[in-house]
């Protein structure tokens, strides 16, 4: 699975401009699926199975988009000012590199500050793309870029940009590959614009009208020095979300997921995340309401260019999803 992960996390796909990732995923899934389509917001919707008696229509969602920046101004000397796409933290940017959709590269630096201890606000940062005037700057206002960074394989742990949420994209692709038969009509949705407010999942869920929704995304951990207080840690299995900052999982779905994991002897953790949310939030409020849950891949340093996951959690997530989808479902 690691070569697939590497391909996915090194692809360029800021929110709203997920085309390159979509093409990659399409190549992987076309032979495995019964139907593949792209909707008005660019969601890739991949169907496997046909609903049989007792089966459900299930939507799984992993978002293809990643956080990034967008150029707002090019000054006389060719320096690029920018604003953010999605939740970017200033402290993770300085000295980093960006790659624009048009192929241009640049480095992020900032105006000189009075105190060396201060973190630059975005307004005081700029991107140097190697130009010396507005005229020869390869970037225009409105051009998007992502934080360029190759993946590193630390053995059991993997580090890359956009583990959030390409690791889940990889999990869905692998689950589709492993899923031999299902009584359900399963829609694997590779969604768009999650980082700017779960917009793609909103419209995908409306179009699919599922009976059950599961988002697959990353979640934070509490296992770093003097870090956040949180019960989730790397390597202890994928996390079944109970709640996050924007959603309460359906308790019946939480029970079904955790009971299934226990029966199949797949390690798992229970997750409460006090900020942030996922595509599940959007799915839950669709039409007359949808029971939802979320399977999370524990991840350190989320929304930095070096997000870290444990490979065993990824493998276990695939196993759990495969078991969950292979059997009839009785929510109670």
């Amino acid at each position: 699975m690691k070569p697939l992960i590497k391909k996915l996390v090194e692809a360029v796909g800021p929110s709203g401009y997920e085309g390159a990732v979509r093409e990659l995923v399409k190549k992987e899934v076309t032979k495995l699926a019964d139907d593949v389509r792209v909707d008005a917001l660019g969601n890739l919707i991949v169907r496997k199975g046909k609903q049989r008696p007792g089966g459900l229509r299930i939507m799984l969602s992993a978002h293809m988009d990643e956080i990034g920046i967008i150029a707002t101004h090019i000054d006389e000397n060719g320096f690029v000012r920018f604003t953010t796409i999605g939740g970017v933290y200033p402290r993770t940017l300085f000295g980093g590199r960006v790659q624009f959709l048009n192929g241009a590269f640049g480095v992020i630096s900032g105006e000189r500050l009075e105190s060396a201890d201060r973190v630059h606000s975005f307004e005081k940062m700029y991107i140097d793309v190697g130009a010396d005037s507005k005229a020869n700057c390869p970037v225009k206002i409105g051009d998007l870029a992502i934080f360029e960074r190759p993946m590193i394989d630390l053995g059991s742990r993997l580090v890359a940009k956009s583990m959030d949420d390409r690791i889940a994209v990889a999990v869905l692709i692998e689950t589709l590959r492993k899923l031999e038969s299902t009584p359900h009509e399963v829609y694997f949705v590779f969604s768009t614009q999650e980082e700017v407010g779960t917009r793609g999942a909103t419209t995908a869920a409306y179009g699919i009208d599922p009976d059950l929704g599961i988002a697959v995304d990353v979640t934070g951990t509490g296992d770093t020095p003097k870090g956040m207080r949180m019960a989730v840690k790397l390597g202890a299995g994928p996390a079944v979300k109970v709640r996050d900052g924007g959603m309460l999982s359906d308790p019946r779905v939480v029970r079904w997921m955790s009971d299934t994991a226990e029966a199949a002897k797949i390690p798992y953790q229970l997750e409460i995340l006090e900020a942030g949310s996922t595509d599940a939030r959007a799915i839950q409020l669709t039409r007359a309401g949808v029971p939802v849950g979320c399977l999370s891949i524990p991840c350190r340093y989320i929304h930095s260019p070096s997000e870290m996951v444990d490979y065993s959690d990824v493998v276990n997530a695939v196993s759990l999803l495969t078991v969950l989808l292979s059997n009839p479902i009785q929510l109670k």
């Binding site: 924007g246 959603m247 939030r281 409020l285 007359a288 309401g289």
Partner: peptide, 13 residues
């Protein structure tokens, strides 16, 4: 108290 979840969905039905 959290998402207005019921109020968004029941009227739709």
């Amino acid at each position: 108290e959290e998402t207005l979840g019921g109020a968004f969905t029941s009227p739709f039905e």
